[in-house]
Design a protein around this nucleic acid. Structure first.
Lengths: 339, 339
DNA sequence: TTCATCAATTAAAACCCTTTCATTATAATG
DNA sequence: CATTATAATGAAAGGGTTTTAATTGATGAA
């Protein structure tokens, strides 16, 4: 591979010093128009593009951020990732995507490599409760914002929705529709978001005086297949639930899938409510009743705040801890229970 | 921000030279076990991690690749991205994600920044027919593989499916179900994949002796909303089509959405067939009939081949041009036409 | 004992920028 | 015209690695 054209080559060609080339490239003041022209011409002639790696080494900024998600295949994440990537693009940042499969070991590895690659900051969309590595990041003042994740750490920056309330909204809706046998599908409780949804679910039911049937609750990995199998099993019970609250739309889809495969009609025989309000939930062919999160706004906030964390040199006095309000969106997968 | 711990610091701590530290880090031969230990201990004590940026500058390898997709929100892309990212992870590469919104200008900008960031290679999942910038990349022998995209260039590496055949399979299926009024939804023809699907569509219909009703065909942006609006409009026609072939599942979903909003029942009143076989298509609640692409395999091939392009120093003698076979998967959104 | 050989280690250049400090050219002021 | 301020440029020192060439040390053969 032939050697790269460097700023030094440009300098020679233009008959100036390398630092002048750098000056032009960085739009520094105090440059004679004629000189600038000469340099620009030389750049054009040689087809020079500056080496961002060398630039990063010298400037200690990479203009690259990390985005760690549990599963990019989950539309909630891909929709968020899109907003984040595009917004980053506009601000001249790039994003390195990491997919942890909701595995903490992988998460920590990813943080490690991202730090190795000297990213300027990281957005973590699947942060477990008491991850040491993440805590350390916050302790060190490294720019990190949690997205749709929460950590109990006095320096933690996060943007999430009021998950407790979201879960309550879901339960209230089902209760109002006369449902009393409620299935519950949730991810691992290592996530505080899940934890709060659990809490909202439990508390609401308690208040309403309805018992939770342990058989109806799945709390485990975010595995489509596991949720699918679990739901199928539960639906075969003599006394099966009349509805399911799944704490993510993705999992709600798995529930719908299982129900359909058992020839159970939605919503007549089974109501299903999700969480996230993924684009497809709005699709009228599906029409998933769900709890909406303002993901566009959340993603934008996450990115913008990360960037200011990066660019404001003065360390933030108070951490960024934003909790937005979720909302119930009633569509076609829930209906009154006649049982 | 306190200064980074460098290999030099480690060297001092261990009482060796910096190059020895580097040797240890890179597992070079000819190192006394005792020395290696000393260095490893020093590394541990100081919590040193090597600066990949500096490493990249010196070695001219970043162990980072670019992944350019039209829309990460399209499950076909996010599912592919996941495979690629995870596979890359395993091989110690990271991926920078770029979302072009199917915009060529953005695509070219992305290529530019990726090259600036000195990525070792690029996977392009939305390459338009005669993009000059991409051609140049191939001319230069820069490691690029097109994914689900094709270019007529004698050095182009690509992995795609036989799109012509895929489209034919779809049409044959509809024809066999007695459909004669076929709607067609396709992306912009600047994509060769689309072009071949167009061709397959046309040729098959010609052979079957059925006329294409221009009113029924949408060829334009991959915009959910535009497709939705178009479909709605067409479905309100007196003589509306009895089925739609959408050249991506994502667009098929838009068709289903529109149909449902018009209270047209699927598949009784309208058959819909997609293309891609996205995970959700398999969902029995949806059960989208579609043309399947072996995306897992394609994505793996794309990544693995990109990496060998990067790592084999000898330039590939012949370009990588793989065309896999698509398949028809019949599910629930298509049925016999009684009209 | 001496030279050759090879293992183990170091010194230093290279990678391509940014940035600080010093220097020279130019303009402004009295 | 001398003096001072300021604009314009350059030289050189990093930044943290890799890598090549050089050096030292040890071992064995002649």
């Amino acid at each position: 591979m032939k050697n790269q054209i460097s700023a030094y080559d440009v300098a020679r060609q233009a008959g100036v010093s390398q630092s002048t080339v750098s000056r032009v490239l960085n739009n520094y003041p105090h440059i004679k128009e004629a000189t600038r022209k000469k340099v620009l011409v030389a750049i054009e002639e040689l087809g020079f593009t500056r080496d961002e790696i060398a630039r990063s080494l010298a400037s200690k900024k990479t203009r690259t951020i990390g985005l760690i998600v549990g599963d990019i295949t989950n539309p909630f994440f891909s929709e968020s990732a899109k907003v984040i990537t595009k917004k980053a693009q506009k601000l001249n940042y790039n994003v390195i995507l990491c997919n942890t499969d909701h595995n903490e070991i992988q998460l920590e590895k990813d943080i490690q490599t991202l730090k190795g690659k000297r990213v300027d900051g990281i957005i973590i969309a699947s942060a477990d409760k008491d991850n040491q590595k993440i805590s350390t990041l916050f302790d060190q003042g490294f720019p990190v914002v949690l997205y749709n994740s929460i950590m109990q750490h006095d320096k933690a920056n996060y943007i999430a929705v009021n998950n407790y309330k979201g879960a309550r909204l879901a339960v209230e809706h089902l209760f109002n529709l006369n449902h009393r046998n409620i299935g519950y599908i949730a991810g691992p409780s290592k996530y505080l978001t899940t934890h709060f949804r659990n809490l909202g679910f439990k508390n609401a039911l308690e208040e309403f005086g309805v018992e939770i049937n342990k058989q109806y609750v799945y709390q485990g990995e975010f595995s489509y297949n596991e949720v699918y199998q679990f739901t199928k099993k539960v639906l075969r019970l003599k006394n099966r639930p009349t509805c399911f609250f799944a704490t993510s739309d993705q999992m709600a889809f798995a529930v719908l899938d299982a129900a359909s495969s058992e020839n159970i009609s939605i919503p007549d025989e089974l109501s299903v409510i999700g969480f996230d309000d993924v684009d497809l939930a709005k699709n009228e062919f599906i029409g998933l009743t769900t709890i909406t999160q303002p993901k566009e706004r959340m993603a934008t906030l996450a990115l913008e705040n990360l960037i200011s964390l990066i660019e404001e040199s003065e360390e933030m006095d108070s951490p960024l801890q934003i909790i937005l309000e979720p909302d119930l969106v009633i569509r076609k997968t829930t209906s009154i229970c006649h049982k």
